[in-house]
């Protein structure tokens, strides 16, 4: 796995420059928490790294093939169960028992076969997290992954992520300093950089 390198990345929306000539480097296997005020370009940065958005100028290199992404919105198939939502990305590559074990770790075992449309916001968030982790990514991108979780559950979810992503690159956007500290690794404050 190589380091992810951004070189002179710029991006504007409707004439408003969000990212201006950004050059960064993320070490392979490292956890990086990205902070910054609203609208500074945290999500844009993640989307450019994931290849979901092209920069106006500059380049991103050495992004791994397999990416797991927890979007700000859950983006779940509402009519399907938690198990099915994970199966969508894993197929039969990950046995059902393993998926159920992941859901159990996130306290969702009893609801594993229920349609996620009946889930609370926090439950949906955990399904989205399990889906990204179960995809066995080399790069895990988390965009405000703990939104809607109570503090106790937040700690459990952070522990779950740390257990399963050892040796993988994790980029996590969060507003909360304590979350960033619990996640470990490097903390980058975009307010200081841009």
């Amino acid at each position: 796995m190589n380091n992810i390198v951004l070189t002179g990345v710029s991006k504007s929306f409707d004439g408003r420059e969000i990212l201006k000539n950004v050059s960064m480097r993320f070490e392979a296997g490292q956890t990086v928490c990205i902070r910054g005020r609203s609208g500074i370009g945290k999500t844009t940065l993640l989307r450019i790294i994931a290849g979901l958005m092209a920069p106006d100028s500059g380049a991103v290199s050495a992004v791994p093939e397999r990416i797991g992404f927890v979007f700000q919105e859950d983006r779940l198939c509402e009519d399907f169960s938690a198990l099915s939502n994970i199966r969508l990305v894993t197929g039969r590559a990950l046995p059902k028992e393993d998926i159920l074990r992941h859901l159990e770790e996130l306290e969702l075992a009893e609801s594993a076969l229920q349609p996620v449309r009946d889930f609370s916001g926090g439950m949906k968030r955990r399904v989205a997290l399990a889906r990204a982790v179960c995809a066995d990514p080399n790069l895990l991108i988390l965009d405000e992954p703990f939104k809607g979780l109570d503090p106790e559950l937040r700690m459990k979810v952070i522990a779950y992520i740390k257990r399963h992503v050892e040796g993988k690159t994790v980029l996590c956007v969060t507003h909360d300093v304590s979350e960033a500290l619990y996640m470990g690794g490097t903390i980058i404050d975009l307010d200081d950089l841009f």
């Binding site: 994931a50 979901l52 990416i67 797991g68 992404f69 979007f71 983006r75 990305v89």
Partner: peptide
């Protein structure tokens, strides 16, 4: 977009 990212 989600399904494309996860290469479903």
């Amino acid at each position: 977009e989600m399904s494309a990212l996860f290469k479903v």
